[in-house]
Amino acid sequence: MKPKMGVYENSVLRVVADARGLIVSVVGFGSYVRGDVSNISDTDLIIVVEDSAPKQEVRLLDEKLNALEFKHQPSRPEGIATRMLFVLARQTGMFVPRFVCERSDFMNLRFHRIFHTNRLLTKLLSPTSIVLGSIFSHARTLHGDNLLVHLRVPRPSMIDWGKSLVMNLLLSVGAAFFSLVTSHAVTFSLEATKWSLYSTSFLAWRDSPRLSVVIKRFVESPVLPRYLNRFMQLRSDPGPDTRFIWFTPIATILIHGSVNQIVRRRLKRNPASDARVNPEVSGPRTV
């Protein structure tokens, strides 16, 4: 089923249509494609250009996309503390609505080139196999060639599970301390919780369904039902919640530590269950 297109997404595709011969494909992923957009969701698009595309034309395309982002998503962080958090988060690919990369980088899954993340932070902290697997288990081609059928996504590893724990723990602890000086800290606590849930769920189930489905898996296990209920409330109506923010580092540890519970729950429900495959990604999906 195709995702419902918003004003921003349609504007991007119009820019893409005008750049014939430059753009190979546009891939959508995230809550916008899953169909569970919240008040803090952004659009997630990967725009793939030819390796031979003139750099000047790619820069011009990037400028047009920046203008669209400013027009349709005009909110900007205010205050020194909030800006610091946003700058750090964007270095890991968070809160960035679209990414432009070359075909060879996309096909070879070069994480830092696709998502324009800091190369050192990516190597040290990014759970690349889990993030790539989670993204491409539900991604959809919105324009151009369907490159997804040629991808071979790496199998998620326990090393990357550890990186996910460290990265989201750092984000949640940072949000807790910054909550003393900015009301926007809850956004980062919510992001740390969301990615902790998706990382652990993907490691156990090898799929990336709607967030409500992921949360149901944890609640049924049971893992943090009251905290996760508050998490969903804040996603719908973000606001300062000191107790939630300061508990998030503990919740991050507990969510990651529940992976064996989630696996046992999965096997109990369906002993023959295995990875769910995105029909746009050819199998075997993991290598």
Rank of each mutant, 00 (worst) to 15 (best):
T82Y: 12
V87K: 13
L88A: 14
A89Q: 04
A89I: 08
R90D: 05
R90K: 13
T92E: 01
T92L: 10
G93I: 06
G93W: 01
G93N: 05
F95D: 14
F95E: 15
F95M: 15
F95Q: 15
V96F: 07
V96M: 02
R98L: 09
R98D: 01
C101G: 02
E102I: 11
S104R: 04
S104M: 04
D105K: 13
F106A: 02
N108I: 10
R110G: 01
F111C: 06
H112F: 12
H112T: 12
R113W: 01
F115R: 01
T117V: 11
T117E: 07
L120D: 06
L120G: 02
T122R: 00
T122K: 00
K123D: 11
L125W: 08
P127R: 02
T128P: 03
I130F: 03
V131P: 00
V131E: 00
S134Y: 02
F136G: 05
F136V: 08
S137K: 00
H138M: 10
R140E: 05
T141Y: 07
H143E: 10
D145M: 13
D145Q: 14
D145T: 15
D145R: 11
H150Q: 05
L151V: 02
R152I: 03
V153H: 08
P154R: 00
R155E: 08
R155Q: 06
P156Y: 03
P156H: 03
P156N: 04
I159V: 15
I159W: 10
I159C: 12
W161S: 08
G162V: 06
K163E: 01
S164C: 07
L165A: 10
L165R: 01
L165D: 03
V166C: 04
M167P: 00
L169H: 08
L171T: 14
G174Y: 00
G174W: 00
A176Y: 02
A176W: 04
F178E: 06
S179C: 09
S179F: 05
L180M: 15
V181K: 09
T182L: 14
S183R: 13
S183I: 12
S183F: 11
H184E: 15
